[in-house]
Design a binder for these strands. Structure first.
Length: 433
RNA sequence: GUGACCUUAGUUUAGUGGUAAAACUCCACUCUGUGGAAGUGGUAUCGGGAGUUCGAUUCUCCUAGGUCACCCCA
């Protein structure tokens, strides 16, 4: 925002990128840690894939005609001429890694969790940046719907417990496999084609580019048409029907409540069968649009699209930034940085020279400490100490340095005692109890 | 990618066609070894560039960034 260095824009962030500092950083870290604990309880193992991947990995996996590929990828070309992109999503890289490292030789299914930055070049707005954090889960090598349920249940638990957002509503649907979806899409298209003239502009475009998205339209004019549209549930093949039914039964038995959303579709080409999304259950008094907190689905054909034999898989991810955004909007940010208990003050150059040595003693004794070593006057250092809310202050002056002692000052009672440095740790520990 | 609104110190905001004000914060000093106070001072080429004008922070255009909506998605 600011300039200072002339007009060169050197002091300016790139659009859609954000600095994460102090409290937010710590909250983020905590959420991730808790999420990792929950994930590993359910049996997931960590994986970290690179930020850069070959462009083709995504163009073929996600689908050429999706927005992500058409306009949202950060592309760069290497000197050797390779086309690379900053990863726009997490699933394709993980399937790539699974194949590349021969994970099919491990006991199946392989369950993985990851978190990190993803990049999409789109117009920033509420809950959407160009660099954003996801926490995601993938289960590869298993077709049974129990693993779909594991993904949903684990992500739900993470949202509710690690992030602390309740209540979450789970929207769920099945979009069939390649075969039955093809049939359905045809039906849907013919149904809509007859009503082309009554559709909104976007839908007329969708009809050609991505018919499934017609169901996603929020426009009133299209609502009526949508009501009468054929439902995918009725077109699922026996295999898909059973898979979906079983998933719902498992969720029922797990006491996960969900909302059957026949209009829920996913944008990426590789999805099949299960699709799900998480929302914050809406409060009627809040006028803000409800953000999708996370989502995912099954992608049994992804490995095949990438040129491998079929590997069934299912996964999902949580938008960490969005979750934090909602937390802060609900003012639930537990802003709790540890208050520094002890503040170290030095006076005079001899003391200053010795201060790093002293700090090290305290560090090894695991006594957290704050300081302002670059300052000289006692007054200003005390001021800072009280501003930070320190309960004890250590003062090392000229006299103490030569005597090998140090002053411990109680900031509340203003009482002080002089102790030999050799006894400092013991005395402090007693006081801090 | 499309559209709307916005951009004045670190922060939050005044204000005017004749080169800017307040509050809080920060830094320094008053006060060279004892804090929470007070006083004094310091910190802005009014996001950047171009144009209109004798003169623009103020008007116009462009650009960058912010916020929001659409598309789409996490």
């Amino acid at each position: 925002m600011s300039k200072k260095i002339n007009n060169k824009g050197l002091i300016e962030r790139v659009r859609g990128m954000h600095d994460v500092m102090s409290n937010e950083y710590l909250i983020r870290k905590k959420i991730i840690e808790k999420a990792e604990n929950i994930a590993s309880f359910y049996g997931f193992e960590p994986i970290q894939t690179p930020h850069l991947e070959r462009a083709e990995l995504f163009t073929s996996a996600i689908g050429e005609s999706t927005d992500i590929i058409e306009k949202e990828m950060y592309k760069l070309k290497t000197k050797g001429g390779d086309n690379l992109v900053l990863r726009p999503e997490g699933t394709a890289p993980i399937v790539r890694a699974y194949i590349e490292h021969g994970m099919q030789t491990k006991p199946q299914p392989v369950m993985l969790y990851y978190h990190g930055s993803f990049f999409r070049h789109e117009r920033p707005q509420r809950g959407r940046s160009r660099e954003f954090q996801q926490f995601g889960l993938e289960i590869l090598g298993e077709e049974n719907s129990i693993v779909d349920a594991i993904i949903i249940k684990t992500l739900l638990t993470i949202l509710e417990e690690a992030v602390g957002i309740k209540p979450i509503s789970v929207h769920i649907n099945s979009i069939g496999d390649k075969e039955c979806r093809k049939v359905y899409q045809k039906e849907l298209t013919t149904y809509y084609k007859r009503k082309t003239n009554d559709l909104c502009k976007d839908c007329q475009y969708r009809l050609k580019s991505n018919p499934l998205r017609l169901l996603d339209c929020k426009n009133k004019e299209c609502d009526e048409i949508k009501q009468g549209a054929p439902q995918i549930i009725n077109y699922l093949c026996p295999g898909c029907t059973n898979h979906f039914k079983e998933l719902l039964e498992i969720l029922d038995a797990s006491e996960v409540s969900y909302f059957l959303d026949q209009y829920l579709v996913r944008g990426l080409d590789y999805y099949s069968r299960t699709a799900f999304e998480f929302f914050l259950e809406e409060n009627p008094d809040e006028e803000k649009m409800s953000l999708e907190l996370g989502g995912g689905g099954r992608y049994d054909s992804l490995a095949h699209i990438l040129g491998n034999k079929n590997i069934p898989g299912v996964g999902g991810a949580i938008g960490v930034d969005r979750a934090i955004k909602i937390l802060s909007e609900k003012k639930k940010l537990s802003v709790q940085t540890k208050t520094p208990e002890v503040f170290f003050i030095q006076l005079g150059s001899n003391a200053k020279y010795k201060s790093l040595f002293l700090l090290d003693i305290l560090r090894k004794a695991k006594i957290p400490i704050k300081h302002s070593l670059s300052r000289n006057s006692l007054k200003s250092q005390l001021k800072i100490a009280s501003k930070l809310g320190a309960s004890y202050v250590l003062i090392l002056g000229q006299k103490e340095t030569t005597d090998n002692t140090i002053i411990i000052r109680n900031m509340e009672t203003t009482s002080q005692e002089i102790v030999p440095i050799s006894k400092l740790v013991d005395r402090l520990k007693k006081k801090l109890k």
